[in-house]
């Protein structure tokens, strides 16, 4: 059984139709990537899953239960956390306070503390800067914090919206290595929206290519990687 199953999802973004019936699945412990040009509807898809955008139609099933009209609070508790586009860390909150907010929906204090230690082990830089304000961190550190904040919800599935955007190539590599680690060592399923097609298809097992609110192509990442023509036509860039 797949962990997350989206079927025929339709959504508007303001007056614009953003999703025209897309179907996506994330298996337990899998890494799935969502590719496509700007405005393809990738972010809207993630926001529908996390409950921030209310879809117009279709179904979203989480571990077999329909979760279409649940609040983000409920969905976070159920085990889906989001690392938003542009990181969106709280700039006036310290690193520790940002992590604390990631764990807002939880009340198991002892576990929260040990999870914070785990995040600090994953990103030692954050530990050094735990008292600093989020806004004072560098771009790479902010991305670490955004991921760490997502992990503090103790998710089974982590949604990542353009985690490599705006980072130096070396940092991009680090971020993708972290994602692999989260998948292999922490056992997390990941749904990653990316513009960095090469990297995304390297770490993921399955990929969907979206255009104008529809899934145009999908398949195992290894196959998509070799299908240069497909990528070129839907990404608008030669890879």
């Amino acid at each position: 059984m797949s962990l997350l199953k989206i079927d025929g999802l339709e959504a508007n973004y303001g007056p614009v139709t953003a999703l025209r019936g897309i179907s996506i699945e994330v298996p337990e412990g899998g890494i799935v990537t969502l590719l496509g040009a700007n405005g393809a509807g990738k972010s809207t898809t993630l926001k529908c899953i996390s409950g921030v955008v209310k879809p117009r139609g279709g179904t979203i099933e989480w571990k077999g239960d329909k979760i279409l009209n649940r609040s983000p609070n409920w969905i976070t508790r159920a085990g889906i956390a989001q690392v938003p586009e542009g990181r969106r860390i709280f700039k006036d909150l310290s690193v520790s306070e940002n992590l604390m907010m990631g764990a807002y929906t939880r009340s198991d204090r002892g576990q929260i503390r040990s999870d914070e230690e785990r995040v600090f082990e994953l990103f030692p830089r954050l530990k050094e800067r735990s008292k600093q304000l989020g806004g004072s961190l560098s771009g790479g550190e902010q991305q670490m914090l955004a991921i760490g904040r997502g992990l503090m919800a103790r998710p089974t599935l982590l949604l990542l919206d353009e985690p490599s955007l705006g980072l130096a190539p070396l940092l991009v590599k680090d971020i993708f290595e972290t994602l692999l680690k989260l998948n292999q060592e922490w056992g997390l399923a990941l749904l990653v929206v990316e513009q960095n097609v090469t990297m995304a298809l390297k770490v993921s097992q399955f990929g969907y290519v979206m255009q104008l609110g529809q899934v145009m192509v999908s398949g195992p990442s290894a196959e998509l990687r070799n299908d240069a023509k497909v990528l070129e036509s839907y990404m608008g860039v030669a890879q």
Binding site: S50, V52, S71, P72, N73, W74, I75, T76, R77, A81, Q82, P84, R88, I89, F90, K91, D92, L93, E97, M100, M101, G102, Y104, T105, R149, A153
Partner: peptide, 23 residues
């Protein structure tokens, strides 16, 4: 306190706060 920090988080970025599951 968690609620107090959440109040500041809401000031900072209401949409991000909402995404984190902060009611």
């Amino acid at each position: 306190t968690k609620q107090g920090v959440a109040m500041r988080a809401l000031t900072d970025d209401p949409e991000a706060a909402y995404m984190m599951g902060i009611p």
